[in-house]
Design a protein around this nucleic acid. Structure first.
Lengths: 295, 295
DNA sequence: AGAGGTTACGGGCAGCGTAAGGATC
DNA sequence: GATCCTTACGCTGCCCGTAACCTCT
């Protein structure tokens, strides 16, 4: 009785992609019975079973496998319409955005603001986490776009390179600190990014190479805390100039030059190439533009 | 807010094809406000005007013209799904069928029965009319499939040739009629198909050539009436053997051989090639199969 | 017992038809 | 005034979420 609906096909593809009705429901922001119902009604209009219901999850039947190809083509076509005839202001959907804290502290607000202006109907969900978790989230399709210490070396992922964050060494700006006193890295704790992050690993390796294993590292999962610790004179830190400059101007911390610096932090905006989404591409490039404008 | 829907695109294409919301409503079996509403909602989801509303009808805007191409592709894709993954028993829709009376009197019932068995969910609407009107109906898209004295020489039309109806001469079977008496075509009225039909024209031309302008023709728009008139002894007629045989067997009419016969009646099952419809193709070929089986 | 899927049921909303209201020729 | 499209409005039916149930590991 009913006709084929694009919504059914999109739902079908989501289920195929994640291999489970339950997880598809999450991705689609629906309850699980709703997804079941959509699939059932699709099966009814086609007069065919699309999935075998096994005990643990679903598996495509022969007919279902056949439909996947057509459904993908429908998707592509809808994508083309969105790109070429649809007013971007009318594009609707969700964008689950994951960002590193460095980004959150610098130009995230401006990026989200611009993105919202371009796609006012798109709901943006923001998660701040370390790059390793963001990478995981992207690959398991829990996130759509991640801005992290990239690139992600996976052929399913497209990476847009963002301008790097130059680092600088900071120590307390308190009056008691002699401005010219040299910092002894074997005695002063070095505050840095959380364990498990690339900057942590690189800095640790660099410090070991230069000063031996006796350096003391205070990793912190909060950038804000890092600056607080530096300000309080607990230790020194190599942190993004883009974030430290303001505090240095206020005299709360001061920059110093021990003669070497960790590498700049190279971020990428990364997203899955399949299924192709023009909005995601645009958003990733918008991130680059905003970053260039801001840094 | 809403997503693109195939139904909207189908409606859009129908409006584009017939150039009017009113006529599209007829074709789609909807009221005219319903079509307006669908188009408006499509325009809203795209954020673009698709039609310029002139006083008399609608005209495509630039954006609308752009969408037509994509909508056609959606249509084709949906068509492919119907052909390849959909159970024919689930195909839904309308089929406006136009047939000549000769067909209606012979194998129409069996054809419709078979068609309904193959596509149980398709609503079939039957019109019986002369071939000229059926041709007109097809070209104005008021009919989807016509079975008539074809073919229709128009490149937009696909014609499937059906087995021809052989004719035979019939006169009354009443006892009073001498079985061997020769028929005088200049004295006996010749009953035949309605004015404006091809058999009428051909027979008239043939009779004039053989017997001069003094022959008397009684055209009738009802085949059943033709046989009644013959049976009552009003005149003679060249009518399809497939229809006359039964009456001859009953002795109500009798076949005779004046030494010549009009050409057999060649029918075709004809339908518009665009938009492509697998169901229509199948139906046309089914008509041929049924006819071959029956005649 | 827990994870994954289906069934049952109530409520909200989209979309249809009827009817009335412009606009253009 | 006729034709064509839009707007207004009530109603129906679809589809979602909640909740309970089923079935495998």
């Amino acid at each position: 009785m009913p006709q084929l609906k694009l919504e059914q096909l999109r739902t079908f593809l989501a289920v195929v992609r994640v291999g489970s009705i339950n997880r598809a429901a999450d991705v689609l922001h629906l309850t699980q019975p709703a997804v079941t119902s959509r699939i059932k009604s699709l099966e009814e209009t086609l007069g065919t079973e699309l999935f075998e219901r096994t005990g643990s999850g679903v598996r495509l039947t022969k007919q279902g496998d056949l439909l996947v190809g057509y459904a993908e083509q429908f998707r592509q076509l809808a994508e083309l319409v969105e790109e070429n005839v649809m007013d971007p202001g009318e594009v609707d959907g969700f964008l689950r955005l994951g960002v590193s804290e460095t980004i959150a502290q610098s130009w995230l607000a401006e990026f989200v603001s611009d993105l919202h202006r371009l796609y006012p109907k798109v709901k943006i969900e923001i998660s701040v986490d370390i790059s390793a978790h963001l990478r995981e989230g992207l690959l398991t399709r829990e996130l759509d776009l991640v801005i992290l210490l990239g690139p992600i070396s996976d052929f399913t992922v497209d990476n847009v390179e963002l301008p790097a964050f130059d680092l600088a060494w900071y120590r307390s700006g308190a009056a008691g600190t002699a401005r010219e006193a040299a910092v002894d890295f074997t005695k002063t704790p070095v505050i840095t990014y959380a364990k498990g992050t690339r900057p942590f690993r690189e800095l640790k390796s660099e410090l070991f190479g230069r000063f031996g294993p006796h350096v003391v590292l205070f990793p912190s999962s909060s950038l804000e805390s890092c600056f607080r610790l530096v300000e309080a004179g607990i230790g020194v830190a190599a942190l993004p100039k883009a974030l430290g400059q303001r505090l240095a101007d206020d005299g709360r911390v001061q920059e110093f030059d021990p003669g070497w610096l960790p590498n700049p932090l190279k971020f990428t905006a990364s997203y899955l190439g399949e299924p192709k989404s023009h909005m995601l591409e645009t958003a990733a490039h918008l991130a680059r533009d905003v970053a260039q404008r801001t840094i």
